[in-house]
């Protein structure tokens, strides 16, 4: 692998709460993701999984609590006992340490696959274009799309688009990768190719938080499974414990329905 290895990050979430218009979607959430591990977040729709993920890289601002990456607070700078909110510019720079993969891909439709991957490392990190382009081709090769570098997103299948989106996230050399239901918008037969890429990344020791409904993926790739309901973490632990011997009725009921 010619891509530069990045030291995987450690994510801590302390007592995070978040409301939308009076409805509390996250309630006092605590979570630790150890470096190089995979955390899978499960739960029914509306349980706050996606919101939690978006709070991690500060796409959403939390109302209470803190998120930290490698001990550094996300969205704030600490000086003594005061916290200064980061300006948008600093926030954007901090965000590049998280790679984010969306349910609906959100590739830039007017740019080719290669241009999608190259854009941010050049414009946000100021790396030389030639070097980034060479690296982007390696990344596209890694997700199995070396021959589709010149294609526009609409000329690609959903699975291919999502793999380009993963390459785009990787090009920023993130310390943590966040996946928001990466396979929910895909045909069942395309799910495998995307999960395969994510499992490869897991084996390489990338820190990942994956929101998904794919229980099989959780069993195979997760180091930690978190079950959420109504904005709270109901239980968390290794997959064999949470999936096979859940302690809470709510978890048991959910698993009985999806398995």
């Amino acid at each position: 692998m010619t891509t530069v290895a990045v030291r995987p990050g450690r994510v801590e979430v302390h007592g995070v709460s978040k409301s939308y218009g009076g409805v509390e979607v996250l309630h006092d959430v605590d979570l630790v993701v150890e470096p190089g591990t995979v955390t899978v977040v499960l739960g029914p729709s509306g349980s706050g999984k996606s919101t939690l993920l978006r709070c991690l890289n500060h796409l959403e601002k939390v109302d209470r609590g803190f998120v930290a990456l490698d001990g550094e607070l996300v969205g704030y700078r600490r000086r003594g006992d005061t916290l200064h909110e980061l300006k948008e510019k600093e926030l954007l720079r901090q965000r590049t340490r998280f790679g984010f993969v969306f349910q609906s891909f959100n590739l830039f439709p007017h740019l080719t696959a290669l241009e999608n991957v190259v854009e941010a490392p050049v414009s946000a990190q100021g790396r030389p274009r030639a070097q980034v382009e060479a690296e982007a081709r390696v990344l596209l090769d890694r997700v199995g799309l070396a021959d589709r570098a010149g294609a526009y997103p609409r000329q690609l299948s959903g699975g291919q688009q999502q793999r380009v989106a993963i390459a785009r996230a990787l090009a920023m050399r993130p310390a943590v990768l966040l996946f928001d239901e990466p396979t929910s918008a895909l045909d069942p037969e395309l799910v495998g190719e995307v999960l395969g890429v994510i499992e490869d990344l897991a084996r390489d020791g990338t820190t990942m938080v994956v929101v998904t409904h794919e229980i099989g993926f959780a069993r195979k790739a997760a180091d930690q499974v978190v079950f959420m309901d109504a904005g709270r973490v109901v239980e968390s632990g290794p997959p064999d414990q949470v999936l096979d011997a859940p302690r809470h009725d709510r978890t048991r009921a959910f698993l009985a329905r999806v398995l």
Binding site: N57, L92, R95, F98, F100, E119, A120, A124, A169, M172
Partner: peptide
């Protein structure tokens, strides 16, 4: 959102 999460200025 995609542009913001990639940190594009």
């Amino acid at each position: 959102e995609a542009a913001a999460s990639l940190g594009i200025p």
